[in-house]
Amino acid sequence: CHSECLGNCSQPDDPTKCVACRNFYLDGRCVETCPPPYYHFQDWRCVNFSFCQDLHHKCKNSRRQGCHQYVIHNNKCIPECPSGYTMNSSNLLCTPCLGPCPKVCHLLEGEKTIDSVTSAQELRGCTVINGSLIINIRGGNNLAAELEANLGLIEEISGYLKIRRSYALVSLSFFRKLRLIRGETLEIGNYSFYALDNQNLRQLWDWSKHNLTITQGKLFFHYNPKLCLSEIHKMEEVSGTKGRQERNDIALKTNGDQASCENELLKFSYIRTSFDKILLRWEPYWPPDFRDLLGFMLFYKEAPYQNVTEFDGQDACGSNSWTVVDIDPPLRSNDPKSQNHPGWLMRGLKPWTQYAIFVKTLVTFSDERRTYGAKSDIIYVQTDATNPSVPLDPISVSNSSSQIILKWKPPSDPNGNITHYLVFWERQAEDSELFELDYCLKGLKLPSRTWSPPFESEDSQKHNQSEYEDSAGECCSCPKTDSQILKELEESSFRKTFEDYLHNVVFVPRKT
């Protein structure tokens, strides 16, 4: 048989008469490798580009789960590009990614509803959504962080984005990388972005840091009482949809009607710091009717980097990364020049730590249904340095008659930039024990000054392991946590139920 035959053949030295091919099969003959313009397919066939392209389009058009959109890589027609490569849609070739590779997620039936953290986790790592997304989240724990972890990498949506009755959302900033909504599939009414009845939605994105392009379709905003109209108009300008909307697409009466839409800028007039305090004062603000001013709200939190936005980490279910302080308005003076500047002394802060701070007014709604208010920009203030805590785990070892090696770990709280350490030492008198000992005694162990690591005695271990207080009263049991108490109650309830079950099964009433 021919060298490319495997198993047997019907005619000697003829690659077209093989029972099976050793390498690849091409047009009725066995070959060692697939010549151009053919590609290896499933490690035994040679196919042309049209064959591989037909497989790709067949799966793409069917949208069946589990099928493969075949691509070409290293002269092979394979189910998908290997790690580190992405497909070129024009020629199906796998090309190296520039940075992290995109991950295209194809949605069944063309859309997916995100109504819980669990459903959001199914899209973790996706960068391109081939379909439409509907966000409908009523509640949950730590929602802002969970949504950002699972949806934060999405850069492109081919269909539309719909935010509907998501009472738990305060902001859409968890879509931190969303840059493009194509609108290839539109919501009824030709809408590519749809926001309806979101009672706590206050911000779409921080438009000073976020760009969003909507290729096709219109915007729809109705019944978002805490979303200011200025935020919607800003989205029109940034996304390129200005002029597409009709009169009733953006409701003037049901958007922002319960919001404090600040239209003035508060400026800080005085800032002073110490290692654990920050004193702030800002310019006074009074609405047209000074009785509408209820006070100020001061927001602050630790910020290692200057990239904080107002609604980071917030949701309507209680999660809030900001510390909020309510401040009463100052006494009002008739003389504008003698107006008191409101302020606040922030206490209990960490030394040498940068804080993000902003302040906003708290006002009631005027009778004319106009909203007044003022808010400052987010500023960054760093507390002063102070003395560091003591170095940890000092170790001293003498390696000769004239040297001592000293080692330690950095302090747990540096409280500033540590530039150097101060080492103090003092000579001590020799131990009298060394002169009084009889060095001729056998088995004498000389006193040693070398360091030995501390260890816990058996008594201390027994005390720590004991669940009861000892007789001397030195140790006591740790208080039980809520989960331990709940577990004990469940076990007790189970024992009672099981005992009742045994009584009912074992003891049967005697027939009379």
Rank of each mutant, 00 (worst) to 15 (best):
residue 241 T to P: 10
residue 278 I to L: 15
residue 296 F to C: 07
residue 275 F to R: 02
residue 150 N to L: 11
residue 200 N to G: 09
residue 225 P to V: 13
residue 207 W to T: 07
residue 392 L to N: 08
residue 361 T to A: 09
residue 136 N to K: 04
residue 379 I to K: 03
residue 390 V to D: 15
residue 328 D to S: 03
residue 176 R to V: 10
residue 303 A to E: 01
residue 138 R to P: 05
residue 199 Q to L: 12
residue 328 D to E: 15
residue 212 L to R: 00
residue 345 L to D: 13
residue 110 G to F: 04
residue 293 L to G: 03
residue 246 E to D: 14
residue 260 S to M: 11
residue 259 A to C: 14
residue 214 I to N: 03
residue 237 E to A: 08
residue 154 I to Q: 00
residue 210 H to R: 05
residue 295 G to N: 07
residue 221 F to M: 12
residue 196 L to Q: 13
residue 298 L to M: 11
residue 103 K to N: 04
residue 206 D to Y: 09
residue 188 I to M: 15
residue 262 E to R: 10
residue 242 K to E: 06
residue 374 A to Y: 07
residue 217 G to R: 02
residue 207 W to P: 03
residue 172 L to D: 00
residue 308 V to S: 13
residue 273 T to S: 05
residue 311 F to L: 05
residue 292 D to N: 03
residue 269 S to R: 15
residue 337 K to G: 10
residue 371 T to P: 06
residue 248 N to E: 15
residue 123 L to Y: 07
residue 389 S to I: 03
residue 264 E to Q: 10
residue 180 L to F: 13
residue 114 I to C: 04
residue 202 R to I: 00
residue 370 R to L: 06
residue 249 D to V: 11
residue 392 L to W: 15
residue 241 T to C: 05
residue 145 A to N: 12
residue 210 H to W: 04
residue 333 S to M: 12
residue 273 T to M: 06
residue 305 Y to E: 09
residue 307 N to F: 09
residue 403 Q to P: 00
residue 242 K to T: 06
residue 175 F to V: 02
residue 297 M to V: 11
residue 368 E to D: 14
residue 192 S to A: 03
residue 141 N to F: 06
residue 191 Y to N: 07
residue 303 A to S: 06
residue 305 Y to M: 14
residue 387 N to G: 15
residue 131 G to M: 01
residue 187 E to C: 15
residue 292 D to W: 15
residue 151 L to E: 15
residue 335 D to Y: 03
residue 375 K to A: 09
residue 163 I to L: 04
residue 206 D to C: 08
residue 155 E to G: 11
residue 199 Q to W: 12
residue 346 M to Y: 01
residue 403 Q to L: 13
residue 367 D to P: 06
residue 167 Y to R: 06
residue 171 S to C: 15
residue 178 L to K: 00
residue 209 K to R: 09
residue 172 L to K: 00
residue 119 S to Q: 02
residue 408 W to V: 03
residue 245 Q to H: 05
residue 368 E to Y: 09
residue 346 M to L: 12
residue 141 N to L: 12
residue 351 P to N: 03
residue 246 E to I: 07
residue 151 L to Q: 00
residue 193 F to E: 00
residue 369 R to Q: 10
residue 254 T to W: 13
residue 259 A to T: 12
residue 194 Y to H: 13
residue 344 W to T: 12
residue 169 L to W: 01
residue 169 L to S: 06
residue 153 L to C: 15
residue 145 A to M: 14
residue 181 I to Q: 00
residue 333 S to D: 10
residue 370 R to W: 12
residue 186 L to S: 09
residue 307 N to H: 15
residue 215 T to H: 07
residue 140 G to Q: 03
residue 254 T to Q: 03
residue 106 H to P: 09
residue 199 Q to H: 12
residue 289 D to L: 03
residue 304 P to Q: 06
residue 302 E to D: 06
residue 151 L to G: 03
residue 338 S to V: 06
residue 270 Y to I: 15
residue 373 G to S: 07
residue 244 R to M: 12
residue 230 S to L: 07
residue 176 R to D: 05
residue 132 S to T: 09
residue 238 V to Q: 14
residue 199 Q to G: 07
residue 283 E to M: 15
residue 353 T to I: 14
residue 153 L to N: 08
residue 280 L to T: 09
residue 151 L to W: 10
residue 350 K to V: 04
residue 152 G to C: 06
residue 286 W to A: 03
residue 163 I to M: 09
residue 160 Y to I: 15
residue 393 D to E: 13
residue 281 R to P: 00
residue 203 Q to K: 09
residue 286 W to P: 12
residue 307 N to R: 03
residue 317 C to Y: 11
residue 353 T to L: 05
residue 280 L to C: 11
residue 183 G to C: 00
residue 132 S to A: 10
residue 160 Y to T: 05
residue 241 T to S: 07
residue 147 L to V: 14
residue 391 P to V: 04
residue 236 E to W: 08
residue 378 I to C: 02
residue 137 I to T: 15
residue 389 S to H: 11
residue 158 S to W: 15
residue 267 K to F: 04
residue 198 N to A: 07
residue 107 L to H: 14
residue 132 S to L: 00
residue 367 D to Q: 15
residue 406 L to G: 04
residue 199 Q to T: 10
residue 216 Q to F: 15
residue 233 H to V: 12
residue 284 P to F: 15
residue 326 D to K: 01
residue 307 N to L: 13
residue 365 F to Q: 11
residue 155 E to D: 04
residue 307 N to A: 10
residue 111 E to S: 02
residue 105 C to W: 01
residue 137 I to L: 07
residue 281 R to A: 09
residue 235 M to F: 11
residue 402 S to I: 02
residue 177 K to A: 09
residue 113 T to W: 13
residue 316 A to F: 06
residue 140 G to K: 15
residue 227 L to A: 02
residue 264 E to S: 11
residue 232 I to L: 07
residue 292 D to M: 12
residue 221 F to A: 15
residue 381 V to S: 03
residue 212 L to S: 01
residue 386 T to F: 02
residue 161 L to K: 00
residue 291 R to N: 07
residue 291 R to P: 08
residue 191 Y to A: 06
residue 393 D to A: 07
residue 186 L to T: 14
residue 153 L to H: 05
residue 381 V to E: 06
residue 195 A to F: 06
residue 213 T to W: 07
residue 197 D to S: 02
residue 253 K to I: 11
residue 410 P to V: 15
residue 255 N to S: 08
residue 315 D to V: 05
residue 289 D to Q: 05
residue 159 G to S: 03
residue 209 K to G: 10
residue 223 Y to C: 15
residue 300 Y to P: 00
residue 388 P to M: 00
residue 239 S to Q: 08
residue 161 L to D: 00
residue 376 S to W: 00
residue 176 R to K: 09
residue 122 E to L: 12
residue 303 A to N: 06
residue 167 Y to S: 01
residue 409 K to F: 05
residue 122 E to D: 08
residue 106 H to C: 10
residue 110 G to E: 04
residue 334 N to L: 05
residue 304 P to I: 06
residue 380 Y to G: 03
residue 182 R to I: 12
residue 161 L to W: 00
